[in-house]
Nucleic acid binder design. Structure first.
Length: 825
RNA sequence: GGGCAGGUGGUGGAAUGGUAUACACGAGAGACUUAAAAUCUCUUGGUCGUAAGACCUUGUGGGUUCGAGUCCCACCCUGCCCACCA
């Protein structure tokens, strides 16, 4: 997905080698230990040759288990990365053994900045770097024993993939969901380029530390806001963590209120405001416009003109970050007045940057008595502060009780807001914090935006396809038009200059504009910006269903069979990014009739992060990175997989412990030792199967492992080996396959067998230990047959010398079958 | 300022309102070994006690309950996300 941590090997290698040697774990030393290096490679080859993990039969019930898209960074993975991948792999294997036809694919979110920055610095083209990185990631994933269907591997930088990213852009553009407008963007004056918000650190460019400015540029947008309500409503049906849903709701930020108009005193213009509190109209003592508000220039009086211009220019220079970080509010009077529609009072109009241009109407009716921010501003500039009180009763009569901000509650607002809004000629409305999605990037390593600009009034456009709904804008002599589908993909050229110049590097390509005029008419030229990589990753899960299709982004039948994704695993940091973009994309394509579902991911779980052994976030600079290649080499992939599940609850973040991992390796050796000599004569360990199955269904992988440990600690004989191996297989696939085929002598893969069944009744022990309490305090226990009656338990307690007094002393008792008996005095 | 998680031994953590501290790590003692590693066995929340046992203990303070780590109220602390959103 996004550019995750970049892992540097060099400082770590020495450290880790020392650590491993210190722990002294050497599998070759004792007979009881298995040689992980040998068996892991052997079975990885076997699974690949036999195609064990390929999804291709359509007869069985489908189950789609997906990891979030990976960005193949230069240094490969650290041990935190495989945690989510291991969990999804365990689920894929588990559901496969439950008889499902499982789709478990992997692919690469290959476009993005690090490869391009590397090209700027070193000169190696991004395509080359990316190819190398992918090969390394793939090698690592295979060495972990992941059961991906590599026939379905996809790569966003492959023209066969980005053709469809471009096609989706075209569909959105043709239907009015992609549009172009002037917008402020983060601009680094030194690098001469636009930066994404993530690249702006504390108001500075992350690469050169220059102060980032706001620059107005023509940019492409997707109409995110058209789906704001549907994106909120759709959450209800999803099995996602509640906190994730809540974060998305807050990000979309719906609020109900009213749109009101304040006429300029002595002018014809009106200032529109959005307010959630029209009931505080009588407390309005001034009006504030955002510095960017279009009426500022128009209404400012000649006396105030200079001061206002200076203030506005200053505000523009400040970054959004500086503006919000400002401790004190600032502003300037415009000299103009508006009329309050409720009481016809004249109030002054100010300009202040605490009002945001891009929320509501970029203007606020200030009520300093009932709003903290207005209050602070009013105090600083000596503006009137008027509480809404009893004397306004005439106005509010009939609209419910009088409003005092602290007493205002939801029930009253339901009655009061519509009535008052109507009385002053406003209307009820809903506002969202969500903005449209700015997808243009002045970058090379991304999917080119498939748009052609032609001279205005050009006779030759558009050719074919649906009529373009492209807007023309302010006096420009060129208009953007949609491309023909058959002209896709627009291939990313390689004759470019990577050095940043302020324009997209594609502008420096000669090849890129070849043939455009011949095809689209004289003067035609291509858009040179590329798309945000989040566009590429907003639909990739669809492509896995039918990755080799050359006619469509994915065939209808395949989509119908596999989608939506049944189980999605990935980090919570993507909540307000990727997860929202993907939901938006599915909703647009659904609305346009390309999909028959409108949510991409039915069930979602987040993995917690693995911190370094020092409890800090793993990072190159802290030097606490643990390299999974080292772990696999010394302890084996099975050990790593199982330890990462054993560490704690899947969603929780926690520190890595190499010593803790050694405990898991000891357990696997113990298993290996105990299964020796097992034969075909087998019995189901019902209690074990029941507990493991139950925890698998709840994704409580940590307790699955501890349950297996407890079982092995007690296990006698070998009658349990067959079923135990099946339970072990998703976690430690190599060892399980080794036991399955080479100890038990099975001929097919353990993954082609079925998850063991159990009998609930036989899963229960014949006898139970009942806690004997006195006033809730434990005094002892009695062992007795399961489901023993109250009378039998009482008798057993009475027979116990130490407990017998409880029966005699107590007036009454509470009995819970198979659990407790509590005596009350 | 708003939202969401969470606070349990030396450590990671376990526990449908019913025996708190499972499992694992670490530590201590012992066995094997010339020795070490590995492996195996035992001990391991605290206080008092020779012992039997008693009392205390899940961030703090209240409450509900026969019984609360778990439910309710208030507070403290930590982490994450958003943040001048009218």
């Amino acid at each position: 997905m996004s550019e995750m941590c970049i892992v540097d090997k060099s400082p770590f290698v020495n450290r880790s080698k020392r650590a491993f040697r210190f722990l002294g774990y050497d599998s070759a030393m004792a007979k009881a230990k298995f040689n992980h290096q040998k068996i892991e490679k052997k079975w990885q080859k076997f699974w690949e040759a036999e195609g064990i993990f390929k999804a291709n039969e359509k007869a069985r019930e489908p189950f789609y288990v997906l990891d979030m898209f990976a960005y193949p960074s230069g240094e490969g993975m650290h041990v935190g990365h495989p945690r989510g991948y291991t969990a999804s792999d365990i689920l894929a294997k588990y559901y496969m053994m439950q008889g499902k036809n499982v789709l478990h694919p992997f692919g690469w979110d290959a476009f993005g900045l690090p490869a391009e920055n590397y090209a700027v610095k070193v000169g190696v083209p991004p395509a080359q770097t990316t190819k190398k990185n992918i090969a390394n990631f793939k090698r690592q994933l295979k060495s972990f024993g992941m059961g991906y269907d590599w026939d379905r591997e996809i790569n966003t930088s492959d023209p066969n993939y980005y053709k469809w990213t471009q096609w989706i852009f075209k569909v959105l553009f043709d239907n009015g969901y992609a549009y172009q407008k002037e917008a402020y963007a983060n601009w680094c004056p030194k690098c001469q380029t636009v930066l994404a918000n993530e690249q702006v650190v504390a108001g500075q460019c992350e690469r050169c530390d220059s102060a980032v400015e706001q620059k107005k540029m023509k940019q492409w947008f997707f109409k995110f806001t058209a789906f704001a309500q549907e994106l909120i409503d759709g959450l209800a049906q999803l099995d996602w963590p509640e906190s994730t849903k809540e974060m998305q709701k807050n990000w979309i930020g719906r609020s109900e209120g009213a749109e009101l108009e304040f006429a300029i005193d002595g002018g014809r213009d009106k200032i529109k405001v959005f307010t959630t509190r029209p009931d505080t109209l009588f407390g309005v003592t001034y009006m504030v416009l955002a510095p960017e508000h279009e009426l500022v220039e128009k209404i400012v009086t000649s006396e105030q003109k200079k001061a206002v211009e200076r203030y506005v220019a200053n505000a523009r220079k400040k970054s959004a970050l500086d503006r919000t970080a400002a401790k004190e509010k600032t502003g300037v009077f415009t000299g103009a007045y508006v009329v309050n529609p409720a009481n016809h009072e004249r109030v002054p109009v100010w300009v202040a940057d605490y009002v945001l241009a891009d929320y509501g109407f970029g203007a606020v009716m200030a009520v300093p008595a009932h709003d903290e921010r207005d209050n602070e501003f009013a105090k600083k500039y000596d503006l009137r502060i008027v509480r809404v009180i009893e004397s306004d009763e005439d106005f509010y009569a009939g609209y419910g009780k009088l409003i005092n901000s602290s007493e205002f509650d939801g029930q009253e607002s339901e009655k009061v807001i519509p009535a008052i809004t109507k009385k002053v000629g406003g209307k009820l409305t809903v506002q969202y914090k969500l903005h449209d999605w700015l997808i243009s990037r002045q970058r090379y390593w991304g999917a080119p935006i498939p748009i052609i600009y032609v001279p205005k009034g050009s006779p030759s456009v558009p050719r074919g396809g649906k009529k373009s709904v492209a807007p023309t804008y302010g006096g420009d002599s060129f208009v953007p038009v949609s491309m023909d589908e058959k002209d896709l993909p627009v291939i990313l050229p390689n004759d470019v200059d990577f050095k940043p110049t302020g324009e997209s590097p594609l502008a420096s390509s000669k090849k890129f504009q070849d043939g455009v005029e011949a095809r689209y008419g004289k003067g035609a030229r291509r858009e040179v910006d590329t798309m945000d990589t989040f566009v590429c990753s907003s639909w990739y899960f669809l492509r896995y269903c039918d990755p080799h299709n050359t006619k469509e982004f994915a065939g209808k039948d395949s989509l119908k069979y596999w989608m939506p994704v049944d189980f999605y695993v990935g980090g919570a940091e993507h909540t307000n990014g990727h997860l929202l973009y993907a939901r938006f994309m599915v909703k647009v394509l659904h609305k346009l009739g390309y999909l028959d579902f409108d949510e991409p991911f039915l069930k979602l779980r987040h993995q917690g992060m693995i911190q370094g052994e020092d409890g800090e976030k793993m990072s190159k600079s802290r030097g606490n990175v643990v390299n999974p290649d080292e772990v696999v080499e010394h302890y084996g992939a099975d050990t790593m997989r199982m330890y990462e599940m054993f560490m704690g609850p899947f969603a929780m973040s926690m520190p890595w412990s190499t010593q803790g991992m050694v405990g898991v390796r000891r357990f696997l050796d113990k298993v290996w030792g105990k299964v020796q000599g097992a034969d075909k004569k087998q019995e189901t360990p019902h209690a074990l199967v029941a507990k493991v199955t139950e925890d698998m269904e709840g994704q409580k992988f940590n307790t699955v492992v501890s349950t297996m440990m407890e079982f092995i600690n007690e296990a006698q004989g070998t009658s349990w080996v067959r079923d135990f191996t099946l339970l072990l297989a998703p976690f430690a696939p190599h060892l399980a396959e080794e036991i399955w085929q080479n100890v038990l002598g099975e001929k097919a893969s353990v993954f082609e067998d079925r998850w063991p069944r159990f009998d609930t009744k036989r899963a229960q022990a014949a006898s139970v230990v009942i806690a004997v309490q006195e006033m809730g305090k434990l005094r002892g226990t009695v062992e007795i047959a399961r489901d023993a009656s109250e009378r039998d338990v009482l008798a057993a307690v009475e027979q116990n010398d130490k407990l017998t007094r409880l029966v005699q002393n107590s007036k009454k008792h509470v009995f819970v079958p198979n659990k407790i008996i509590n005596f009350i005095n």
